[in-house]
Structure formats: structure tokens, C-alpha cells
Design a protein around this nucleic acid. Structure first.
Ligand SMILES: [Mn+2]
Ligand SMILES: [Mn+2]
Ligand SMILES: [Zn+2]
Ligand SMILES: [Zn+2]
Lengths: 149, 149
DNA sequence: CTAATCAGTTGGAATGATTCCAAGTTGCAA
DNA sequence: TTGCAACTTGGAATCATTCCAACTGATTAG
């Protein structure tokens, strides 16, 4: 079940879109709502399926367009593992990803600032990094929901 | 210019292949030679082009097959960045990757054990990781060859 | 109140890395 | 020899993603 955006979320979405010179549309609202109502790193097709429950006429092309816009506006992150279909993550805090090899599910792993700094410190002079991606792959023995990073 | 494998490299290749129940073939030798003679993280097509200089009849399918075999035998690592074509890396030491946004080139960044450990430490109980991928993306201001990690 | 404009949406075609497959090769074993 | 099993090869199939041209809807200019 996909909720509508609440006042705060709606404002944030519109503000970020406007800052990038883009408009708030019903499709963008539906796609964004899909992402924040279940933060499970869905693929484009999963977003598409879920968004259609709310807005049956929406096209796959639009889902691609919306997600691209959100990434450009800094509202969501793209998450890739090898060459699997791209997933999307609305968690903007610094975090790593853990992919469960049994289920394929992706979990957020909180990334403390000191660990992030120790990582940055391995870059030799002359290498200036804007993005750092960290991903783990292995077995998650818990069936519990992922720690909310 | 692609060198032949020296005695040591040949032995290591054959040993790793045999351990996985696989044979040393001329094609595998050519592909492996491509990887170690220029450790620049080539794409499959780049490997293909270079291997053809030595062995003009080799097919692209064979390059895919060889690389898959090498990964299975632990002789090389796959390197992916978003959904770009897969690259291959013969550096088996723990290291991160830096992708230069200007050139697309990938550099090895040495990963000290203490940094690796601090990374492992962020995993909550129940998460057992076998593989950790770390990749930076940004500007490399040096034109110099990459630090040999 | 029209008309032009412009961003956004849509369905379907095109793209391109990778995988699949069926038909040869090759080296070794019975 | 013959048979087998692994390997190679060219081309077809796959499929996530991108591209494109037509359509929609809101806003603006006359
Ligand atoms: Mn339609
Ligand atoms: Mn041929
Ligand atoms: Zn995430
Ligand atoms: Zn490497």
C-alpha cells in the first residue's frame, strides 16, 4: 500500500525540484512516494509496478525519467551491484550497502564519520573524490528488518 | 605490445586453472597475458582488441568465457562502475578503485589492513560479508601513472 | 479569450553489453 | 581408431536502458 506524501515530504520534494528548475508532477509525486514508503532499494521495474497501483496509466519511460530527475536533484541515490538492474535509495545519510546473496535484498549500513574519514585518507595526493561507494556482499543471517541507518 | 607469459606467471595460471578443474589453452594464455601486461582495468572489448593482436582468430565469446573462468578461479577481479561495461583487474591485493571522471580510467588505490578492518567493523551482528567493493569517483589531477597498489 | 510555447509524458523502436546456443575443434583415454 | 569432455566460435537472443516522435496540459503573449 502506497501512502500519499505528507506535508513535509511534499514540501521537500517540491523545493528540491524547483531548485533544479523542475516541476512537481503527479507522476513524480507517485514515484517519490513509492521510494519513501518502503525503503527497500527497489529496481526500476519494482518502482514501476508499485507506482501503477496508484496511477495505472504511468509508463515505464516516465519512471526512468522521474528517477533520473530525482538523482539529478539529489533526492535519491542510484545503487548498482555488478551489472544487475539499477536500484534506488532515498536515504541521503552517508551509508554503505549490503547485498544479501541469498535474497538479493539490499540493506543500508550506517557509515560513521570516522570510518568515512579513514577511507578518504587512503587517497594519494592528487585524487579528489566526490563520491564514495561501499558495498558488501555476503550472508545476512538475520531475518529481521535491516538496521535503519 | 603483448608479452608472452614468463615461467612464473605461466605456472601460476596453470596451477589456478587446474585447481578449478580447467585446462590451460592458448586462448586463455593470450587473454591472461593481456591482463597482466597492462594493468589498466580494460573492458571486455579492450581485452578482445588486444588479444587479437596476438591471436587474430579469437572470438569475443571466448574472451567472455576466459574472463569468467579467471574470475571463478580467483585469478582476476571484476570491476563495475554503475552500468558501464565490466572491467577486469589482475591485482589480487586488497585495494579500492578510483574512477577518473574526466578520462574514465580506473586506478588502484591501496587499502591498508587497518582501514579494511574499520570498514568491516561497521557491519552489525548477523551480517557476514565475503566481498567488499570500494570505489571512488572524482578528479585525478595528476597526469602521472597511477600509484602501483 | 485564442495561440504559441514549453516541460513533461507516453509507447514503441533502437541500443549495446552480455548470455545463450548449436556446430565445430582439440587433446586425451578406452 | 573411436569416444569423450572440455573448449572455441559465430551468430542469435536477451533485456535493462536510452532514444524518439507524437501527444498532453499548463502557462504566457497577444
Ligand atoms: Mn498509454
Ligand atoms: Mn572464426
Ligand atoms: Zn541505501
Ligand atoms: Zn584494480
Amino acid at each position: 500500500m502506497i501512502q500519499n506524501l505528507n506535508e513535509h515530504e511534499r514540501e521537500k520534494l517540491m523545493a528540491s525540484l524547483n531548485k533544479g528548475g523542475q516541476k512537481l508532477t503527479p507522476q513524480r509525486e507517485a514515484v517519490f512516494s513509492v521510494l519513501i514508503s518502503k525503503r527497500d532499494h527497489p529496481t526500476v521495474d519494482e518502482v514501476f509496478q508499485r507506482a501503477r497501483e496508484t496511477m495505472p496509466g504511468m509508463s515505464l519511460a516516465t519512471v526512468y525519467n522521474c528517477l533520473e530527475t530525482f538523482v539529478a536533484c539529489g533526492l535519491v541515490r542510484q545503487v548498482n551491484h555488478e551489472r544487475e538492474p539499477t536500484r534506488y535509495c532515498p536515504n541521503l545519510a552517508p551509508h554503505a550497502h549490503f547485498r544479501d546473496q541469498a535474497t538479493g535484498r539490499v540493506h543500508d549500513i550506517e557509515l560513521p564519520p570516522e570510518v568515512l574519514n579513514s577511507l578518504r585518507s587512503i587517497l594519494p595526493p592528487g585524487f579528489n573524490s566526490e563520491v564514495i561507494e561501499i558495498s558488501f556482499h555476503g550472508q545476512a543471517s538475520t531475518t529481521e528488518p535491516p538496521p535503519h541507518a
